[in-house]
């Protein structure tokens, strides 16, 4: 063949160099580091978290399932603030229908429709997704209150709800099982399916995606429908376990789900991140919450911890550290020059 222009340095590195390259390509580093720190501290101070693993798993599943759906949207550089309201609305819809299976189907359909409406506003009308889904956040919550007549709706089939809370095998409750299945499904979709891989293109460089002939609008619709569907699934699980559907349900879920996705290394501007990262982020937050609860820390104080962890996670990102160093240097110079002026 002809001469080869060798511009890549990856091959010249040794094993550690190559390992560094591989790690540098991943986005989960931050989440893994944080999870490890939390696990070590918890293992030393509150080992009960691990013996009560069914509680911990349940907690992770609760935070994680919504976060997983949300990640599909975040990868495309969009936001979905309506997930918590979708969760509440779909629970109420399910509980309002006497026949359990019909109720579940209606709830799932609700999630899909919400996703469609979100996508319509974002990609057809062209409203910024923060604003579009903020509107939906209020509208859907209101709708949940209207349908439920502002009071929790009890399930007609209470037995189904009670048996739903029972473990299937070992610590695996249906909630945990569904969480695992959702994780596997979305992970395969995003990493293997063509449409899912193209989410990264839509989020990373939308113009390039359009130029390459990727149907951007359709991808956005798919993303929001995944998010809506998964939120509805969470609403169903919640209502079944509690045997009532509360229109106020899930108010803390939204921000925790975002926190899990961000800690997991997902970039809010899109194009960079992973489903595995979100799983790790959810695990870190779940373990932390359970540990704090077992130690008797009050919920408001727990929120302070979560906030701190989120900020630590984001500021310890190499990019953020670099910019912090830069700002400090500028500040220092700014002071120095005043003293040198003659």
């Amino acid at each position: 063949m002809s001469q080869i222009l060798e511009l890549s340095d990856a091959k010249s590195k040794g094993f550690f160099g190559r390992a560094g390259t591989v790690i540098g390509r991943r986005t989960e580093g931050r989440g893994i580091a944080l999870l490890s720190v939390i696990l070590v501290i918890v293992a030393l101070t509150e080992p009960l978290v691990f013996s009560a693993y069914s509680v911990t798993l349940g907690r992770i599943a609760l935070i994680g399932i919504v976060a997983l759906g949300l990640t599909a949207v975040i990868l495309m550089g969009e936001l979905d603030l309506s997930v918590a309201s979708t969760l509440a609305l779909s629970g109420v819809v399910m509980a309002s229908i006497p026949e359990l299976w019909l109720g579940i189907l209606a709830a799932l359909a609700t999630g899909l429709i919400v996703g469609l409406i979100n996508a319509f506003f974002v990609s057809v009308v062209g409203i910024n997704s923060f604003i579009a889904t903020l509107g939906m956040l209020f509208a859907l919550r209101g709708l949940a209150f209207v349908i439920s007549d502002e009071a929790p709706v009890s399930l007609v089939n209470k037995e189904a709800g009670i048996s739903f809370g029972e473990p299937l095998i070992g610590p695996i409750t249906p909630r945990v099982l569904i969480f695992i299945l959702v994780f596997i499904a979305i992970q395969i979709f995003v990493s293997k399916a063509q449409a899912g891989r193209e989410f990264f293109a839509v989020g990373g460089n939308r113009q390039a995606a359009r130029d390459a002939g990727i149907p951007v609008t359709r991808r956005i619709v798919t993303g929001f429908m995944i998010s809506g569907f998964v939120a509805a699934l969470a609403g169903i699980i919640n209502s079944l376990e509690r045997t009532t559907a509360d229109p106020t349900a899930g108010s803390t879920v939204l921000l925790t789900a975002f926190a899990a996705a961000i800690i997991g290394g997902n970039y809010l501007k899109g194009g960079r991140g992973s489903i595995v990262g979100t799983l790790i982020g959810a695990a870190a937050l779940g373990v932390l919450q359970v540990a704090l609860t077992i130690s008797g820390v009050q919920v408001p104080v727990q929120q302070i911890f979560i906030g701190a962890i989120l900020l630590i996670a984001v500021t310890t990102d190499p990019n953020s550290l670099r910019s912090v160093r830069g700002s400090i240097r500028t500040l220092r110079q700014g002071r120095a020059k005043n003293s040198v002026t003659t």
Binding site: F200, A201, G204, N205, Q207, A208, D211, A212, G271, R272
Partner: peptide, 8 residues
Amino acid sequence: ELSLVPEM
């Protein structure tokens, strides 16, 4: 204009 997706 470079039309590549940086994260892919």
